[in-house]
Design a protein around this nucleic acid. Structure first.
Length: 575
RNA sequence: GCGCCCAUGGCUCAACGGAUAGAGCAUCAGACUUCUAAUCUGACGGUUGCAGGUUCGAGUCCUGCUGGGCGCGCCA
């Protein structure tokens, strides 16, 4: 049982006993209300239950606290209890219970801190990035890629069943415009005097695609009609852009369970129905669809939207919103408990109508939109907007080429998603202490180095040769039964306390969709390790101190690697 | 005009409605004959944008301002 749970049951028992013997006059037995004090001098855990009960029990908080403390059963978990301030009950854990953390971590390894989520909330569809396949991914997409992927990892660890999805906007007029843009460049490169229309894609990558087509297939498209050529190039360029996007996302370590094509929403089944027609019929069944001015409308204003939304235009074309209606309906039909869409903050005006459509079908609250603020790129403090190569937005690929995957991901993840990021390329490239990713990775590498040094020469060679993993080495070096009772140095206790927090932190990060908390946690843990490393020598100590400290270092290694893994950042064994 | 988001040391950011608002960077002063100095120890630095309100308690919640970002198509 986790330490927190042990403490909760002790406080719970005290509350029950106090209510039963009449010394606490309340209706129901309250929650233990445990929290971790901000200031360490206030103990390892604190309960605010006395403060919360003051009004209901008609008693001063400190008096209530006194009653509760008197009813806590005898135990080996709590070393000391103190009533402080207006009525906090502060608990200090015994060294022996803290020491169990080391064993728990090493036993559970990568499963440490795993949580559970109730049936009915567990199956989550997480959709993110979802860029148009009409150009390379830019830096902003990199943030959603890092954030969505880390959210999925963190939520899975917390017990959610997460299905990751990328929605490809491959239907509609933008695709035609894209095909046409390539077509124009193609004809220009073959010497024709045609101009790029106003709203076309002007990026240099469009010309690159045209040049590739010429190199591969020569002038075989030259004699086609503009329409035929546009359609042919639309498909060629679409595949190329999609591959490019998949490629860079793969490099980022971001993978999806499904790449969902918008076009598929328009493909009829045996009965001639499409996802679009089904979703529309379901909405009409509930009475939220009507015709006006030759168009088909969603009566979203009845559900709180500021106005109704067009689904099918007067000219018969489907709106982008219609596709989204069909797509979200499809997702719900696939049996998810909850849908999460991760969007850029510039789409916030779109949220209400999407929430309305789920409500229209009878699933209010099923959709959760997480907005991410934008990324501002800097170089040495100067704003960067243009890419040197393409003359446009800096692509994600260029950024990753320059600063690397780990630093990119870590920095993208280290802020709350509702905070804009000022990303300075030069700072990101620095490999010193101004770059927190290396600080954390260094702590991990340092522990690995320690384990290698502690090993006998044969094992050390096996590790070097890749024949023995760090985990295997650690198991050989420090048996599970190591005597941990000598871990009583303040730096050791602080490290164990921090690791004890891990499960609660993962649960909170998952609940708040806030992987950035893991970056702070990893930095704190790394700092505590570095501090421990400086103040407590390990290899030069006699047993059992040496073994106990190695066990503690190994547990730290496991939690650091786990934290980095949940962020999608590598945990190097050497630096 | 309406709507959403944001405002915390010089800079970048933390703080389930809890206690004396915390870290990192920068600055300054120290620590390598010792397991990786990509490290550590310490100091300096704050009226949490402004004004009210809610309560045992507000950086956090509510209202109104100020300042900044974004959005308000039969575009995608």
């Amino acid at each position: 049982m986790e330490i927190r749970e042990q403490l909760e049951s002790l406080v719970g028992a005290a509350l029950t006993a106090a209510v039963e013997d009449g010394s606490l006059a309340v209706q129901e037995i309250p929650d233990p209300s445990l929290e971790r004090p901000r200031d360490e001098s206030n103990g390892d855990w604190a309960s605010t239950v006395a403060l919360r009960l003051a009004k209901q029990a008609h008693k001063a908080p400190r008096d209530i606290a006194q009653v509760i403390v008197e009813h806590i059963p005898a135990n080996t978990v709590i070393a000391s209890t103190e009533i402080a301030g207006p009525g906090f009950i502060n608990f200090r854990l015994s060294d022996s219970v803290l020491q169990t953390v080391v064993r728990t971590v090493r036993e559970e390894a990568e499963g440490y801190g795993r949580g559970t989520v109730d049936e009915g909330m567990r199956k989550v569809n997480l959709e993110y990035v979802s860029a148009n396949p009409t150009g390379p991914l830019h830096v902003g997409h990199g943030r959603w890629a890092a954030l969505g992927d880390a959210m999925a990892r963190v939520m899975r660890h917390a017990g959610y069943d997460v299905y990751e999805e990328f929605y490809i906007n491959d239907h509609g007029t933008q695709m035609d415009v894209f095909g046409n843009s390539v077509s124009v460049r193609y004809m220009q490169q073959l010497g024709h005097d045609v101009e790029m229309p106003e709203q076309c894609y002007g990026g240099s990558y469009v010309g690159d695609i045209a040049a590739e087509i010429i190199q591969r297939d020569g002038d075989k498209y030259e004699s086609m009609s503009d329409q035929e050529r546009m359609e042919a190039f639309r498909e060629i360029a679409y595949r190329e852009m999609l591959d490019l996007q998949k490629n860079i996302l793969g490099r980022m370590g971001t993978t999806f369970d499904r790449w969902f094509s918008e076009r598929s929403l328009y493909v009829p089944d045996e009965a001639g129905e499409t996802a679009v027609s089904r979703s529309l019929a379901a909405m009409a069944d509930k009475g939220y669809v009507y015709e006006k001015d030759g168009a088909t409308w969603f009566k979203s204003s009845a559900l709180g939207d500021e106005k109704d939304r067009v689904l099918i235009k007067a000219n018969g074309e489907m709106t982008y919103f219609m596709s989204d209606v069909a797509y979200h309906y499809d997702k719900m039909q696939r049996g998810f408990d909850h849908l999460i869409d991760l969007w850029g903050a510039d789409h916030h005006g779109y949220i209400k109508r999407c929430e309305c459509m789920l409500e229209a079908w009878g699933w209010p609250g099923a959709l959760e939109v997480v907005l991410g603020q934008l990324v501002n790129l800097y170089r040495d403090g100067e704003a960067v907007r243009m890419s040197k190569r393409t003359g446009e937005m800096v692509t994600l690929e260029e950024l990753v080429d320059e600063v690397g995957v780990d630093a990119t991901r870590y920095l993208m993840l280290s802020r709350s998603s509702d905070q804009p990021i000022d990303f300075d390329i030069e700072v990101a490239k620095k490999k010193d202490n101004s770059n927190p990713v290396y600080y954390v990775q260094y702590a991990h590498a340092r522990i690995c180095s320690l384990l290698r040094k502690a090993a006998d020469p044969t094992d050390a060679r096996a590790v070097e040769a890749g024949e023995l993993s760090m985990n295997e080495l650690a198991k050989k070096l420090v048996p599970e039964g190591a005597d941990l009772s000598c871990l009583t140095h303040p730096a050791e206790l602080a490290l164990m306390r921090k690791m004890d927090e891990f499960a609660a932190l993962v649960a909170q990060a998952a609940r708040d969709r806030a992987p950035f908390r893991l970056t702070h946690y990893a930095q704190d843990l790394a700092a505590l390790f570095h501090s421990f490393y400086t103040s407590c020598h390990i290899l030069s100590e006699e047993e059992p101190v040496r073994g106990a400290r190695l066990a503690l270092a190994d547990a730290t290694r496991i939690v650091l690697a786990l934290s980095l893994n949940l962020l999608g950042v590598s945990a190097p064994e050497k630096m």
